[in-house]
C-alpha cells in the first residue's frame, strides 16, 4: 500500500465511520434511555432521506439551504416518530426484546410500503450542495469534500449531544430516566414524556443521517434496510448504551472495512459481522458499554 493510498483509505474509513455514527447514534441513544433496540430506526433514516428530497429536490442547493432542508426533514421525521411512540411503541415497552424487535422490523416494511406509495419505486437522488461536488487534495490524494463535511457533521452532532445531555436541565432529566426510569417516575419526572422526546430525538438524528446520504445513495423504498446491519453492528460493538462507544466502534469498523478493501478485499463485506462476533464473545457489553441486551426498561 502506497502512502497516498494509506492517506485516502484512512480518510475514507473515518468518513464512512462518521456516516455510520450518524446512522447509529440515535439507536444508541434510544437504547441507552429506553432499553429498547428500535430497529424502526431504519425507517426514520429512510424517511429523513426522502423528506430531504421532497423539500430540497434533485437540483443543487446552497449549503445553508441544504442544512435548512436537513433540519426540516429532521423535525418532520421527529414529529412523526413522536406520534408513533405515543400511539404504538409505548404499548410494547414491557414486552420481551424479541417482540419489540419483530414489531420494529414489521414497521420498516410498512414504511417501505408507505414510501413506495408516496414517492414510487424508482430510485431518486439529490445533488451535492453547491461547492461540495468535487474533491480536495490531502497529501496528494483526492478526498471528496462531502466526505469531509460528513466528518464535520458527525463532530457537530456529537458536541451538540454532549452539550444537551451534560449541560442542560433536559439532559439531566434524560440521564436520570436512562439510569432508572422507575425511580425517576416515583420522583415526579414525567417518564412518558421523556421517552417520547428521546424517541423523537433519535428519529431526528436518523433523519439527519438520511439527509446527509441523499446525495451519495439512491433513495429507494429499501433504504431503511440498507444500513440496518451496519448500524446494529456499530451499537453492539460500541456498547448498546454508549454514545462515545458508538463513535469509537463506527470509526474502527469503518477503517477496518476500508483497509480490507485494499488488502484482503474478499473479506471486506464481512468486516462488520467479524466485529460483531469478536465483541459478543469477548466483551458482550461492547467496547464502552455497561449494559447487555438482557436489560429491559426498569
Amino acid at each position: 500500500m502506497t502512502f497516498d493510498e494509506l492517506v485516502i483509505v484512512t480518510v475514507n474509513g473515518i468518513s464512512f465511520g462518521f456516516l455510520l455514527f450518524l446512522v447509529a447514534v440515535g439507536l444508541s441513544l434510544v437504547f441507552g434511555v429506553m432499553g429498547i433496540l428500535n430497529l424502526a430506526h431504519g425507517a426514520f433514516f429512510m424517511l429523513g432521506a426522502y423528506l430531504a428530497y421532497e423539500f430540497g429536490g434533485a437540483a443543487a442547493l446552497s449549503l445553508p439551504l441544504f442544512i435548512l432542508v436537513m433540519i426540516g426533514s429532521g423535525l418532520v421525521t421527529a414529529a412523526i416518530a413522536a406520534v408513533l411512540e405515543a400511539a404504538l411503541f409505548r404499548r410494547i415497552y414491557y414486552r420481551e426484546h424479541l417482540e419489540i424487535l419483530v414489531f420494529a422490523f414489521a414497521l420498516i416494511f410498512v414504511a417501505e410500503g408507505a414510501v413506495r406509495l408516496q414517492w414510487g419505486p424508482n430510485p431518486l437522488i439529490m445533488s451535492y450542495p453547491e461547492g461540495f461536488a468535487s474533491s480536495v487534495s490531502i497529501f496528494g490524494a483526492p478526498v471528496p469534500e462531502w466526505s469531509l463535511l460528513i466528518i464535520v457533521a458527525g463532530l457537530v452532532i456529537l458536541a451538540g449531544l454532549a452539550f444537551l445531555l451534560f449541560r442542560t436541565r433536559i439532559g439531566y432529566v434524560i440521564r436520570a430516566v436512562a439510569e432508572d426510569s422507575h425511580m425517576a417516575g416515583a420522583l415526579g419526572l414525567n417518564v412518558g414524556l421523556v421517552f417520547t422526546g428521546v424517541f423523537a430525538l433519535g428519529a431526528l438524528l436518523a433523519a439527519i443521517g438520511g439527509s446527509l446520504v441523499a446525495p451519495t445513495l439512491a433513495l429507494t423504498p429499501q433504504l431503511g434496510l440498507l444500513f440496518l446491519v451496519q448500524a446494529f453492528a456499530v451499537v453492539v460493538v460500541g456498547g448498546l448504551d454508549s454514545i462515545p462507544g458508538s463513535l469509537v466502534a463506527a470509526i474502527i469498523l469503518g477503517l477496518a472495512n476500508s483497509f480490507l478493501v485494499f488488502t484482503f478485499s474478499g473479506w471486506a463485506p464481512y468486516s462488520f459481522y467479524l466485529g460483531l462476533i469478536v465483541v459478543l464473545l469477548l466483551r458482550p457489553q461492547g467496547i464502552l458499554g455497561s449494559r447487555e441486551l438482557t436489560k429491559q426498561v426498569g
Partner: peptide, 14 residues
C-alpha cells in the same frame, strides 16, 4: 401515573 402521584404529595423511598 407515578409522576403525577409524586407531584400530588406521595413520596416513595424504595
Amino acid at each position: 401515573p407515578p409522576h403525577r402521584l409524586a407531584r400530588r404529595g406521595m413520596g416513595y423511598v424504595p
